[in-house]
């Protein structure tokens, strides 16, 4: 695979807390991200999951893929439920009703559950400063309900509610930048990550778990089913997303931005859009327009690098 570093499985902890037998689609990079993240976080972790793909595929009663405490309440409130778990654990430890120990509290949702319906609960939880990790698994549309557009769907992508048609290019709005919205809460750690860069992902998860206070991870989650992508390309596409600037990897630690995978010269966007059915209808002019925008966005990141904001 082009540009792929050697993935040394032995560098990841063996303790797998998200086990096989779940119902994810073939080539789902989101479920891979979930597994890798929980290999890092380990057994002292509790998860509040939003409604969505990961909840549906992992918890069909009486089966469960979770061997750590896991709760699903509703769609828009993963951040609120996680903040409740954190507040509950803190007070019970303070009152001596349970032994004091470090427990990672994780709220997880898709891009719909984060950028759209869950953004209020997320903002509230981040503002209140709970010691928790919020993870947005971004597959850029409502995949669980059948590929409807979200505010995280990229410009030009065809979805079932932003279909490309005779007079439409598909999604006509630009992807909402939830990572920067999270950063605007002045929380100690914010990062984008991708299972296509497993070691970078692992490092970011470790940092997110280590900081005191809220951490936000925005994880690129290739969806072969929704993107009409060959499942065997799910990892490759994640690397192309970084190399073309479609999904840059960076972190903001205590307000300081650092680009994680530097891409001095962005690859042509065609390399990223071509394998994906959701972009296949786009003409050269539109691709060029998107390319220009992604280039500008990447430049903005470069300008911000090292600055405290």
């Amino acid at each position: 695979m082009e540009g792929m570093n050697v993935f040394a499985a032995r560098l990841f902890p063996k303790d797998n807390r998200f086990v096989s037998g779940h119902r994810a689609c073939q080539g789902c990079a989101e479920v891979l991200a979930v597994r890798l993240i929980h290999q890092i976080l380990g057994r002292n972790t509790m998860v509040a999951s939003a409604t969505g793909c990961m909840e549906i595929i992992s918890s069909s009663y009486p089966d469960t893929a979770w061997s750590i405490p896991w709760i699903h309440v509703a769609f828009e409130n993963a951040a609120a439920v996680a903040s409740g778990i954190e507040a509950g654990l803190q007070i019970l430890m303070k009152k001596g009703r349970m032994p004091k120990r470090k427990i990672n509290v994780v709220g997880m949702a898709g891009d719909g559950g984060t950028a759209d319906i869950g953004i209020q609960a997320l903002s509230g939880a981040l503002e209140r400063g709970h010691d928790m990790i919020y993870i947005c698994y971004d597959n850029e549309a409502y995949m669980n309900t059948g590929v409807q557009r979200s505010s995280s769907t990229p410009y030009g992508a065809s979805t079932t509610t932003s279909p490309a048609g005779k007079i439409s290019i598909g999604q006509q709005t630009w992807k909402k930048n939830v990572t920067m919205i999270a950063a605007a809460h002045n929380i100690p750690y914010v990062a984008t990550a991708s299972p296509s860069y497993p070691f970078d992902l692992a490092e970011k998860v470790r940092k997110a778990a280590k900081v005191k206070g809220p951490a936000y991870l925005h994880v690129y989650s290739a969806c072969p089913t929704g993107w009409r992508l060959d499942p065997k390309l799910a990892i490759t596409i994640g690397r192309l997303a970084v190399q073309t600037g479609a999904f840059p990897l960076y972190e903001i630690e205590n307000g300081k931005l650092k680009i994680s995978v530097k891409t001095p010269k962005l690859r042509p966007l065609q390399d990223y859009t071509k394998p994906q059915g959701r972009f296949r209808h786009l003409d050269d002019a539109t691709i060029a327009e998107i390319e220009k925008r992604l280039f500008e966005e990447y430049q903005k990141l470069e300008r911000r690098e090292g600055l405290i904001f």
Binding site: M46, V73, A80, A82, S83, G84, I85
Partner: peptide, 10 residues
């Protein structure tokens, strides 16, 4: 939602 989380941990 917070109440669900807090009650869930006891």
């Amino acid at each position: 939602s917070v109440c669900c989380g807090t009650a869930a941990v006891g």
